[in-house]
Computed example of a mutant assay.
Amino acid sequence: MSNNILKGKRGIIFGALNEDSIAWKTALKAHEEGAQFVLTNAPIALRMGEINKLAEHCNAEIIPADATSIEDLTTLFEKSMEVLGGKLDFVLHSIGMSPNVRKGKSYGDLNYDWFLKTLDISGVSFHKVLQTAEKTDAMNEWGSVLALTYIAAQRTFPDYSDMAQAKSVLESIARSYGYRFAKLKNIRVNTISQSPTMTTAGSGVSGFDAFFDYADKMSPLGNASAEDCANYIIMMFSDYTRMVTMQNLMHDGGFSNSGITEDIIAQLTK
């Protein structure tokens, strides 16, 4: 049921690849709540995904952009304001990729050129998005910018590899740019640390199924779904969270504050 909490708001949603992705579900929910937005992804991802179907449903224009390219991002923000008829109220950065993880490289045998690419795509691109938004003067006052992250930025998880460093960079950027944007235009910048989620990116990590089950048992509420994450994102885009900024917001069913749970104990004592 819609409450129109984003009525009249405009934005950009990065990273909608297919129906499993959090960005895809966020776009559906934003449309339902009255927002207008542009969908964007890297050209290669657009060819792989099914984004045209989403764009048609949401009456949204697709503007390809490589989030590591300042030139592409500048074009994206300028065209988005033109297409949407004004400045933006929200941006979702839902981007992450590690060539080392994709190609099965051990953490003790990283390809450092790929490592730098991981950092650029999954972390530094957030700074590029924020800086371009500032330089193009694309954001309205009291706007909201969000990026998706994971608790591996704070804790070690096998096989998450160099993505952990990228997420640490991402969260640090949110704090530093959150301060800057708050002082400039009352714009808030936050990250949401989501449960392991059955998305294309998540399921590409080695051993993901076992970890998904473990995290579910370690979370008193269970793993947070992609749909629930989309709902949280919509709330963060709304005017109900105008004073929340520079935060890493845990959306994980309680995983981050659980030492051990009855479900884990039961499994270990079988």
Rank of each mutant, 00 (worst) to 15 (best):
W24S: 13
P99T: 10
K270T: 05
D120N: 15
W24K: 02
S80V: 03
S106P: 14
A153K: 02
A67F: 08
M81E: 15
T191Q: 01
G96D: 06
G34K: 03
G222I: 00
S256N: 11
K79A: 12
D239S: 04
M139W: 03
E61V: 15
L119T: 09
N140C: 14
T74F: 07
E78G: 08
L146M: 14
Y150E: 04
P64F: 08
L110C: 14
V145C: 11
G207Q: 03
A166H: 03
G202N: 10
Y150L: 08
G254N: 02
R242I: 00
S106I: 09
I44H: 05
R47Q: 14
P196A: 07
A152C: 12
G85K: 08
D228F: 05
N4L: 15
G259P: 06
D137W: 04
D209C: 03
A27Y: 03
L110P: 04
A153E: 09
L221Q: 11
D159S: 09
L54N: 05
N18G: 04
A152D: 04
S258H: 01
T75C: 09
Y179S: 13
M139I: 09
S125D: 08
P158I: 05
A224Y: 02
A230T: 05
H127W: 12
A42V: 04
G34D: 10
F181R: 02
E71G: 04
R188C: 09
Y240C: 00
V145G: 03
S193E: 11
R180Y: 12
D137R: 08
I264K: 02
M243V: 05
Y214L: 09
L54Q: 06
V38C: 15
V124I: 15
K103I: 09
T191P: 01
T136L: 13
G222A: 07
E56H: 13
P64I: 10
P43L: 08
A215E: 00
P43D: 08
D109F: 06
H251W: 05
M198D: 14
I5G: 09
E262C: 06
L170W: 01
I233T: 05
A182D: 07
G207E: 09
M235R: 05
S94R: 02
I5N: 13
S161I: 03
I5C: 13
N257V: 13
R175V: 15
N231H: 12
R102S: 14
M218R: 02
V189W: 03
R155P: 07
S219V: 00
S69N: 07
H251M: 12
T156C: 09
S106G: 14
M218P: 00
K167R: 13
G222E: 01
E50P: 04
I233G: 01
V38S: 07
K185R: 13
N52L: 11
S21V: 07
